[in-house]
Nucleic acid binder design. Structure first.
Lengths: 190, 190
DNA sequence: CACAAAAGCGACATTTGTGACATTTGCGCT
DNA sequence: AGCGCAAATGTCACAAATGTCGCTTTTGTG
């Protein structure tokens, strides 16, 4: 659990220390205070989220902390393997969940940057997953890519419920990769 | 009753050991001194209270199963309400999950001390949940109480797969409470 | 008992927070 | 473009908090 001081951040952002403190005070940048006089600390992941959110470049020293993990949720082994192969070759970490319980636990445990979600898994309603996830404040950074064979109406509904992007089945490897890199784009190059 | 040394805390907080000692000296962080030359020790609960009080993030390794929180997994509203009512009156915290995804996420997020699990929920195979949970090393402290209307053969199988106890449906409030307190008894006393 | 690793401590170096004030930036207006 | 205003950012000095270093003592492990 690495943290950064205001001074570190001031250097990375090429900005005055005073300004960093103001960002934190105003809530733009998430941080917390040490007991003493309230010296500020920022979790690396929060800092990266901050950079990402403002389209700022991530310093090389912090590249290692960039989260490029993708959770693949689908009950069909064939699909998950295909997606994993494509994403791995593009340099992403992957985890696979074959049912709702695994999906939920792995999501909370591994905190992936993106989840691919099949809407129609037996016993798991993709829409209620979307609703549930979007209610969790600490998953706010999670990108969701819905992958489904359902019609446009259902895809639209998924978007409305909080999916970041949808992909109809069948899809090409190209389409998948461009969707994922589009969502994680600025952060993932190694 | 686990304790932490100043070095541990220094690592968790990403802060210098010297600073931790100063926090303790100043009374910000509650601790006690060993006989020798006064090496410091801090109770985990005091440390967590300290982190909490200052809005600092709690390392995941420490938030495991030191609570009296029970996760109730069942798709039938009536059942979950009944269980919750019984457990609440006995002083337990409760969370409810109505499907597999919620169960998985809440399990990892809240780290309850015990989970009641229905074996036959639509779309969620209780047995595979047992298998999955018992494979996760950081869930080793979790107690699982299986609640099911299935026959003895299936209950035995659940026990074999890692359930700590089973309870046939229907059950009385008494039976439920004695099962839960039996499992948590030794762990939750504070 | 011996040895390695961790912890305490003092002195000193460095960083950080704060307030008051100067400077720059963004933006609408003429 | 020029102007003016408000918001954001930079500057500076000082006090407080935190980090560093070297050394000693304690604790952990065989």
């Amino acid at each position: 659990m690495k943290t950064l001081s205001t001074g570190d951040i001031a250097q990375w952002c090429d900005v005055n220390l005073r300004t960093v403190i103001r960002w934190i005070e105003k809530g733009d940048l998430k941080g917390f205070k040490l007991p003493g006089r309230g010296n500020n600390r920022v979790l690396v992941e929060d800092f990266i989220a901050f950079l990402d959110h403002h389209g700022m470049p991530v310093p090389e020293e912090l590249q290692g902390f960039v989260n490029n993990c993708v959770l693949i949720v689908d009950d069909e082994e064939a699909i998950t393997r295909a997606i994993r192969r494509a994403l791995r070759s593009a340099g992403f970490e992957t985890i696979i969940a074959h049912d709702g319980f695994q999906a939920g636990s792995l999501l909370m445990q591994e905190k992936p940057a993106l989840m691919t979600l099949d809407l129609s898994m037996p016993g798991l309603d993709g829409f209620s997953v979307l609703e549930f996830v979007r209610q969790q404040p600490n998953l706010s950074g999670l990108k969701i890519l819905v992958v489904s064979a359902l019609d446009q109406h259902n895809l639209d509904r998924a978007l409305q419920l909080g999916a970041d992007q949808v992909l109809g089945k069948p899809f090409t490897e190209q389409e998948l990769l461009s969707a994922v890199t589009g969502l994680l784009g600025t952060v993932t190059q190694t």
